[in-house]
Measured scan of single mutants.
Amino acid sequence: RRRVRAILPYTKVPDTDEISFLKGDMFIVHNELEDGWMWVTNLRTDEQGLIVEDLVEEVG
């Protein structure tokens, strides 16, 4: 499975499927959606939700 790491922190918009995260958080990518969004699991918090790919980098 594809893994990505947050390069910046992010605070979710209330009442959306987004998740908040810290710089350095690792995610497993489940689905890549339109307009650069990804459905992921945050490995630190075990939370699932949407993040935008501009805020993460690939992990080898």
Score class of each variant (00 low, 15 high):
R1K: 15
R1M: 15
R1E: 14
R1V: 15
R1C: 10
R2M: 06
R2K: 12
R2V: 07
R2F: 07
R2S: 06
R2H: 07
R2L: 07
R3S: 09
R3Y: 15
R3H: 13
R3T: 14
V4N: 02
V4P: 02
V4A: 05
R5T: 07
R5I: 13
R5M: 11
R5N: 04
R5C: 08
R5S: 06
R5L: 08
R5V: 13
A6V: 01
A6Y: 02
A6E: 00
I7K: 12
I7R: 11
I7E: 03
I7A: 05
I7P: 03
I7D: 02
I7M: 09
I7N: 06
I7G: 03
L8N: 10
L8E: 11
L8H: 12
L8T: 10
P9I: 05
P9W: 06
P9L: 05
Y10L: 02
Y10N: 04
Y10S: 03
Y10M: 04
Y10F: 05
Y10H: 12
Y10E: 00
Y10D: 00
Y10K: 04
Y10P: 03
T11L: 11
T11K: 10
T11C: 08
T11H: 10
T11E: 12
T11D: 13
T11R: 09
K12L: 03
K12A: 15
K12T: 04
K12W: 02
K12F: 03
K12P: 08
K12M: 06
K12I: 03
K12H: 07
K12S: 09
V13Y: 09
P14Q: 10
P14L: 08
P14R: 08
P14I: 09
P14S: 09
P14A: 11
D15C: 10
D15W: 10
D15V: 05
D15G: 14
D15M: 12
D15T: 07
D15E: 12
D15Q: 11
T16W: 03
T16C: 04
T16P: 01
T16N: 04
T16R: 05
T16E: 02
T16G: 05
T16S: 12
D17H: 14
D17R: 14
D17V: 09
D17G: 10
E18A: 05
E18N: 05
E18F: 06
I19D: 00
I19V: 08
I19E: 00
I19F: 02
I19T: 02
I19A: 02
I19R: 00
I19W: 01
I19S: 01
I19C: 04
S20E: 04
S20T: 09
S20M: 02
S20H: 03
S20I: 01
S20Y: 02
F21I: 04
F21V: 04
F21W: 03
F21P: 00
F21L: 02
L22T: 08
L22R: 11
L22E: 14
L22C: 07
L22A: 10
L22D: 11
L22K: 11
L22Y: 09
K23D: 06
K23H: 07
K23T: 11
K23E: 13
K23N: 07
K23L: 10
K23Q: 12
K23M: 11
K23R: 13
K23W: 06
G24N: 08
G24R: 03
G24E: 05
G24T: 03
G24I: 05
G24Y: 07
G24H: 07
G24A: 05
G24M: 04
G24C: 08
G24K: 03
D25T: 02
D25M: 02
D25V: 02
D25Q: 01
D25S: 01
D25G: 01
D25E: 03
D25L: 03
D25P: 01
M26R: 06
M26G: 04
M26V: 15
M26S: 07
M26C: 10
M26I: 14
F27D: 00
F27T: 00
F27N: 00
F27K: 00
F27L: 05
F27R: 00
F27S: 00
I28S: 07
I28C: 08
I28L: 12
I28V: 13
I28Q: 07
V29P: 01
V29A: 02
V29S: 02
V29I: 09
V29C: 03
V29H: 02
V29D: 01
H30A: 05
H30P: 00
H30I: 14
H30K: 05
H30M: 13
H30F: 08
H30L: 15
H30G: 05
N31G: 12
N31H: 15
N31M: 14
N31R: 10
E32G: 06
E32V: 12
E32Q: 12
E32I: 10
L33Y: 12
L33S: 09
L33H: 09
L33C: 09
L33R: 13
L33K: 09
L33I: 10
L33N: 08
L33P: 10
E34W: 10
E34H: 14
E34T: 12
E34V: 12
E34D: 12
E34R: 12
D35N: 15
D35H: 12
D35S: 11
D35V: 07
D35Q: 11
D35M: 10
D35G: 14
D35Y: 11
D35A: 12
D35L: 11
G36E: 03
G36F: 04
W37R: 10
W37L: 10
W37G: 06
W37M: 10
W37A: 07
M38T: 03
M38K: 04
M38R: 04
M38P: 00
M38E: 01
W39A: 04
W39S: 04
W39M: 07
W39N: 05
W39F: 11
W39D: 03
W39P: 00
V40Q: 00
V40S: 03
V40W: 01
V40I: 02
V40P: 00
V40C: 06
T41Y: 09
T41S: 08
T41G: 03
N42L: 13
N42E: 01
N42C: 08
N42V: 02
N42Y: 02
N42Q: 09
N42A: 11
L43W: 04
L43D: 04
L43R: 04
L43C: 09
L43F: 06
L43H: 04
L43T: 10
L43G: 03
L43A: 05
L43N: 05
R44W: 04
R44H: 05
R44F: 05
R44K: 05
R44V: 04
T45M: 03
T45Q: 02
T45H: 01
T45W: 01
T45N: 13
T45A: 03
T45Y: 02
D46W: 13
D46N: 15
D46L: 14
D46S: 15
D46Q: 14
D46R: 14
D46F: 15
E47D: 10
E47S: 06
E47V: 06
E47H: 07
Q48F: 11
Q48I: 13
Q48A: 11
Q48N: 10
Q48Y: 12
Q48W: 09
Q48R: 11
Q48M: 13
G49K: 00
G49D: 00
G49S: 00
G49L: 01
L50N: 04
L50P: 04
I51K: 00
I51A: 05
I51L: 09
I51D: 00
I51F: 01
I51S: 01
I51G: 00
I51Q: 01
I51R: 00
I51W: 01
I51C: 05
I51V: 13
V52G: 14
V52F: 14
V52K: 15
V52C: 12
V52L: 15
V52A: 15
E53F: 11
E53Y: 13
E53Q: 13
E53L: 11
E53R: 15
E53K: 15
E53S: 15
D54K: 14
D54H: 13
D54A: 14
D54S: 13
D54E: 12
L55S: 09
L55Q: 10
L55D: 05
L55I: 07
L55A: 11
L55H: 15
V56N: 01
V56Q: 03
V56K: 01
E57A: 07
E57Y: 07
E57D: 06
E57W: 05
E57K: 06
E57Q: 09
E57T: 09
E58P: 12
E58M: 08
E58D: 14
E58S: 11
E58N: 12
E58V: 10
E58L: 09
V59K: 04
V59N: 06
V59D: 08
V59M: 13
V59F: 11
V59H: 08
V59Y: 11
G60L: 13
G60Y: 15
G60S: 15
G60T: 14
G60I: 14
G60V: 14
G60W: 14
G60R: 12
G60E: 14
